[in-house]
Design a protein around this nucleic acid. Structure first.
Lengths: 191, 191
DNA sequence: CACTAAAAAGGACATTTGTCCCACAAAGAA
DNA sequence: TTCTTTGTGGGACAAATGTCCTTTTTAGTG
């Protein structure tokens, strides 16, 4: 549920420490909007510690959470490749420490550091691999099954992430989420 | 709805014609399964002409279509990057002509041909960018709105793709799709 | 042509989920 | 403390979608 990429963050740490590249650190408090949908930026972020949410919001203000981003997850990189506007907003949930690459340094690294290039390529592929079955499952099964699945994957999710965010992640209303949670509880209380 | 990548197919055509790489052509009839979920392969496909569907099926036989693949779309590449099993099956809809890369040649190209590397990177990023808003929209809006949207994007979709596939793409049952189509028709007949 | 199989359309009913409320508790601000 | 505000929980009903089944249409085959 909260995605991570430990290899990438370790590698970035080394790049940063080498001092050879235009990479720096930034920090954010909780609930700060870091990038906003439909805008242009010229830097790429990589989470060093903390949790953020990446979401799309529509005209009616509905939010749909794409991913919860943990250590080692990058954002802003898609816009680098496509030279377009952001499709998601990213907002910190907890306090956040990030590495930031300028477009120039990111490009330079992709060109000259084959290992970095491979890590980024794999990170992109992972994002695709992860999204596919998740959306498929969410469409095909009732909310309850999705919750059971979440709980197995990430038992403490209710403590860290708000109900509203969980609902937006699963793609249902908070009301429906509540109903499903109650059902689950009643079922487990029988034993 | 049917995704394409004309630059990539043109570039691959050139690579193939150069004869310097381990790239060859294959052909398939309609409705042939080309790769199967949860298997390993050691080649990467790129569509030269025709249309295929990429879908996930679950234990209960439900299919969820991820993408309709047209000219220039590749598949089998995610497994190359992650060294894992396929998460989707791919099946031709029309007759299909494809280029096939051996893993060795694909790897060699990524390493030595910066332009190829960039094209693949961009193709991965495009897949992510495309998926995100689509699933978001499908979750947030009723079937009818989704159909209107599809029709604007791709007016002739009902002629090429079967109702069942369209339903599996939107993530609903054929029955619900029919209902929505009928509603739409009645509404447009009023004018 | 007649026959079969597959795709499409839709009726009737059950279930799930959403909408619109209101109530209550927890956290922060005055 | 008291007063907001925000998150949470849930009742009652409406709407959307699924399930199961039957009928019709279409496409293909001997």
């Amino acid at each position: 549920m909260i995605r991570t990429n430990l290899k990438l963050v370790a590698y970035t740490e080394n790049l940063f420490n080498s001092g050879e590249y235009d990479i720096w650190k930034e920090e954010f408090g909780p609930k700060q909007k870091i990038i906003e949908q439909d805008h242009r930026y010229n830097k790429i972020y990589l989470i060093k510690s903390g949790i953020a949410k990446c979401y799309i919001s529509d005209e009616n203000g509905k939010e749909f959470i794409q991913e919860f981003l943990g250590e080692g997850m990058e954002f802003g990189e898609l816009e680098f490749f496509n030279k377009g506007y952001t499709i998601c907003s990213v907002e910190s949930i907890t306090a956040l420490k990030v590495f930031v690459f300028s477009y120039a340094s990111f490009n330079q690294l992709l060109d000259s550091d084959r290992q970095f290039n491979q890590l980024i390529m794999k990170a992109l592929a992972d994002k695709i691999r992860y999204k596919a079955p998740r959306h498929s499952y969410q469409h095909s099964y009732p909310i309850e099954d999705n919750l059971i699945r979440l709980k197995e994957l990430f038992p403490e999710f209710t403590e860290i992430i708000s109900k509203k965010d969980i609902a937006n992640y699963i793609g249902v209303t908070p009301r429906s989420l509540n109903r499903a949670l109650k059902e689950l509880k009643e079922k487990s209380d029988q034993f």
